[in-house]
Design a protein around this nucleic acid. Structure first.
Length: 883
RNA sequence: GGGAGCAUAGCUCAGCUGGUUUAGAGCAUCUGCCUUACAAGCAGAGGGUCAGGGGUUCGAAUCCCUUUGCUCCCACCA
């Protein structure tokens, strides 16, 4: 059968993926084997695949496939996250485009729309992962809002509430006026933003009327002055000593406020006077608490001024800022304005400027949870890879603040707090138990009197249960409950592959929840991938349009090619600068494998043919080479050096197998191959396909299926990975000498214009052992190798050295003596310099005394080798110049 | 403002406990080749003051200090 010269991934990938699915090769059930478990970091249910997912999931798939081939019961649990803010925002936008306002819908109506959207778009990303070859156990696919998963969330809320760790309180929260919800500290991104610092005159009050005297206050937020509760100066500030106990009037509205003293104020910033606005600034709020100042909230949930502001009511905060500046200017209150760069908080989800806002929220106390979570990482019970993230992890855990877990959204798990008409509330997993509990407070309460909290829980409050709840959703919330069979078998999971940006959002919290409910860690290793950037180092984003479409990429380069491209440039924790040329390299590698297969399968064998000597030697050498590489690969995996492991296989296949092994055993034109060599070659190919499979599942399955007759239901996926075996370093070294000789002879042919078809003779000096002679003869077309105790050279031929072995290739014609001598002189110069540094070391008594014996010995060998080489060159130059 | 990390070939990175390192790989570049598996290939070649400076040491890309330049994390001095 004619095989095309180029590998066509499209013809192969879908075929094998459905074969794997059909045979349920990805499916795992608890059994007597050792488990290997990964839970996927659940992507947003409405998301589409981006390059970050590609990297992340390729790594997971490599680890899972490899574990499976090492005989473990590998289980990779896939799923999606309901992502409350992101999903709700998307659906709100979609409804708006259809002319429907969220506010016109009831909660139930809105949720129906979201579920519809989820059914339609949810899972696109999972389908895309299949294109990548991800060997997830799809039968286990979970969604964070599946009924059992949601119940787990509710149960944990009730658990922590009853444990006293969840409380409700009025706090300054980060308010997102776009999505109309509070967000956690971690979801606020601070960016330097150009703004202005306004210097305003606040007049001293004389019986409620402005006196002639004023003080100047610097502010970036003049639109909040109506909410000022005081003016604050530093107690030690001499300039304002006489203001003590005085009253000040807020400009424009002439409201009287006190002057207070607090050491929070920095004397040398601005004017040393601070306006205190407890409702709209976190620090001011704290000052307000210390001085018992009234809190006047003048900005509503949309970021507009409300009627309490008295002026500019209904204006957006930014419009109001412009307008009030104008009013202040006209009123003579504006002393000056300066350009100013300040750190402004933006919502991670909507990019709206965060408004500090007082509101009633639910919080989880973190201190006790964080303690244990820190210990696990500090003691390396959980390993972070790379471990430089331990520092940031520690810093966060030591400075952890209570977690605001309520969100003013509808999409998510609704907080199971039920309010009685009297204002009291109970926290219970469902309405029935809530009524029972409520009746203990007020026996007359009826079911319809209870009102459930309107808010839902932060998405991370559900995803922190993920490694537990995907196996046993009944367990979270009940630490004493016996784990089910699945949890007992698969948990703790082995490796977690995720991005460092969610180390705190997610990883740390999974450790907390895992420990709380199972008493165990959720995973052993956390491999933190870098951010995928474009080749200019910019983060890939939709707005920049610098992110390639992963699906298109796979269509043009093949999934295997893309996987290889991603892996080659990704070391743990480093950002990866993505460039299509890397993917091209992956595709080229797939093509190389394809063509090696074409070569091997095209060979015809002859039972009666004897195995040539060169083939026997090549087999012996490659066996050793393979074993060495397997050891190196094992080592790389132990250290999570995935790109190095791939590079090792890459070179093993391309350089050692294709460029050397196959070239040696390749029979002459139209000749047949002996069946022993053929059989071994197929065996080697088989081993290589196994080593390659975790990185390149599709092409390897395709070739493995064709390499021999296979039965239906057989798969490379479940074959055993070749195992480490001893090898001989001497044998490999001996081959290297031969390989060097071959390369030198090829070089000579090229520079002297001698056809590869013309046989040459080779003379070798004494340290040479002719173990690999047949290989040199075959690859370099050498008719005979003469090993001579004393090499005799003349101007009719070229010499070269491999290590300290001298070779000579006699030629028919005289050579260009001048050029040859020049080359050797350059070589000699290099060696003499080298010798000088070595001699420098050896003549240094302190070195000889202090350095380890082995190091000194090494230097001595360097010295004698260099001396010997120089001697050889001298002789040769002497012979050539005399002749 | 505080903390952490990084800086090695044109690019992406190795270099692990200081000693086969006058520093390696892959890609890219250049020069030959459409040689009967592969031009998505083959055979060669060039390319580096290990960011700058100082120190420790017999010995430094590696350890310490410092300068510069990037990156990240934390922190709302209005």
């Amino acid at each position: 059968m004619e095989i095309p010269a180029k590998y066509n991934p499209a013809a192969v990938e879908d075929k094998w993926y459905s074969y794997w699915l059909k045979n349920k090769f990805f499916h795992s059930e608890p059994n007597e084997k050792e488990p290997y478990t990964i839970v996927i970091p659940p992507p947003n249910v409405t998301g589409v695949l981006h390059m970050g997912h590609m990297l992340n999931n390729t790594i997971q798939d490599v680890l899972v496939r490899r574990a499976r081939m090492k005989g473990k019961n590998a289980c990779w649990v896939p799923g999606t996250d309901h992502a409350s803010i992101a999903t709700e925002a998307k659906v709100v936008a979609k409804l708006k485009a259809e002319g429907i306002e969220k506010s016109s819908l009831t909660r139930e109506e809105f949720l129906t729309h979201v579920w519809e959207w989820k059914e339609k778009h949810g899972g696109i990303i999972l389908e895309q992962l299949k294109k990548l070859g991800a060997s997830c156990d799809w039968d286990r696919t979970k969604f964070t809002m599946d009924a059992p998963m949601s119940r787990a969330v509710i149960n944990t809320f009730v658990y922590f509430y009853k444990k006293g760790l969840i409380y409700r309180g009025v706090r300054m929260v980060n308010w997102d006026p776009e999505s109309l919800t509070a967000v956690s500290d971690e979801e606020v991104i601070h960016r330097e933003t150009k703004s202005k610092l306004y210097y305003l005159r606040y007049y001293l009050s004389e019986n409620g009327k402005p006196s002639g005297r004023y003080i100047v206050i610097a502010t970036t937020r003049p639109e909040t002055i109506m909410a000022d509760a005081a003016v604050c100066v530093h107690p030690q500030d001499e300039r304002y000593k006489d203001l003590k106990g005085k009253k000040i009037l807020i400009p424009l509205i002439d409201k009287e406020i006190p002057v207070i003293e607090d050491s929070y104020v920095t004397m040398d910033f601005g004017t040393g006077c601070l306006k205190v606005t407890p409702a709209h600034d976190i620090n001011d709020y704290e000052i307000g608490l210390r001085h018992k100042l009234p809190v006047l909230d003048i900005i509503d949930e949309h970021g507009k001024l409300n009627e309490k502001a008295r002026i500019l009511v209904g204006e957006d905060r930014f419009a109001a800022r412009k307008k009030i500046v104008e009013m202040l200017r006209q009123g003579g209150y504006l002393e000056k304005e300066e350009d100013y760069i300040s750190q402004v908080g933006y919502s991670e989800r909507t990019n709206a400027v965060i408004e500090p806002r007082l509101s009633l929220q639910w919080f989880l106390k973190m201190e006790s949870l964080a303690k244990k979570a820190l210990e696990y990482v500090e003691s390396d019970t959980i390993r972070l890879i790379p471990d430089k993230f331990k520092n940031t992890y520690r810093h966060w855990m030591e400075n952890v603040k209570d977690w605001c877990i309520s969100r003013q959204l509808w999409w998510g798990q609704r907080i199971p707090a039920y309010y009685l008409p009297g204002g009291e509330f109970v926290v219970e997993p469902d309405e029935e138990t809530a009524i029972e509990a409520a009746r203990k407070i007020d026996p007359s309460v009826k079911a319809e009197d209870l009102r459930q909290d309107e808010d839902v829980l932060d998405t991370w409050f559900s995803s922190w249960l993920w490694p537990v709840s995907v196996f046993d959703p009944e367990k979270p919330g009940f630490p004493d409950r016996k784990p089910n069979r699945e949890l007992a078998y698969y948990y703790p999971t082995n490796d977690l592959i995720t991005a460092p940006e969610i180390l705190f959002f997610w990883v740390a919290r999974m450790i907390m929840a895992g420990n709380e409910f199972t008493g165990k860690i959720p995973f052993e290793n956390v491999y933190l991938t870098g951010i995928v950037r474009d080749k200019l180092g910019r983060k890939m984003s939709k707005s920049l349009g610098n992110s390639p479409d992963p699906i298109k990429l796979m269509e043009s380069y093949g999934a295997d090619g893309v996987r290889v491209g991603m892996l080659l440039c990704s070391s743990a924790g480093n950002d990866i600068l993505f460039d299509e040329s890397q993917v091209e390299q992956g595709r080229n590698f797939a093509n190389k494998i394809w063509n090696a297969y074409r070569l091997v399968q095209g060979w015809e064998t002859d039972e009666n043919e004897m195995q040539p000597e060169y083939a026997a030697l090549a087999v012996k050498w490659f066996e050793n080479r393979l074993n060495k590489a397997i050891g190196q690969i094992e080592d790389h995996f132990r250290k999570f050096r995935l790109s190095d492991s791939l590079m090792t296989v890459y070179k093993l296949f391309w350089d050692d197998f294709c460029s050397w092994y196959l070239e040696i055993v390749k029979p002459g034109f139209r000749a047949k191959m002996d069946s022993a060599t053929y059989g071994t070659t197929v065996k080697f190919f088989d081993s290589l396909l196994k080593l390659l499979h975790p990185y390149m599942p599709f092409i390897t399955e395709e070739l493995w299926q064709n390499l021999k007759e296979r039965k239906d239901g057989e798969t490379l996926m479940l074959e055993r990975m070749p195992e480490e075996a001893p090898y001989s370093e001497e044998l490999l070294a001996s081959f290297d000498v031969a390989a060097q000789a071959v390369m030198n002879i090829r070089n000579i042919r090229q520079s002297k214009n001698i056809s590869p078809k013309e046989p040459l003779e080779l003379h070798a000096g004494l340290p040479y052992k002719d173990e690999m002679g047949p290989i040199i003869r075959k690859l370099a077309n050498v008719s005979a190798i003469r090993v001579l105790p004393k090499l005799e050279t003349d101007a009719r031929g070229v010499n070269f050295m491999v290590d300290t072995i001298e070779f000579f290739v006699p030629l028919k014609n005289f050579i260009d003596v001048e050029a040859e001598v020049a080359k050797m002189k350059a070589e000699m110069e290099y060696l003499e310099k080298f010798l000088k540094t070595v001699n420098g070391k050896l003549s240094n008594e302190k070195f000889v005394q202090n350095a380890p014996a082995a190091v000194v010995e090494m230097e001595r060998k360097k010295k004698s080798d260099a001396e010997m080489k120089i001697e050889n060159l001298k002789n040769r130059i002497c012979i050539l110049t005399k002749a």
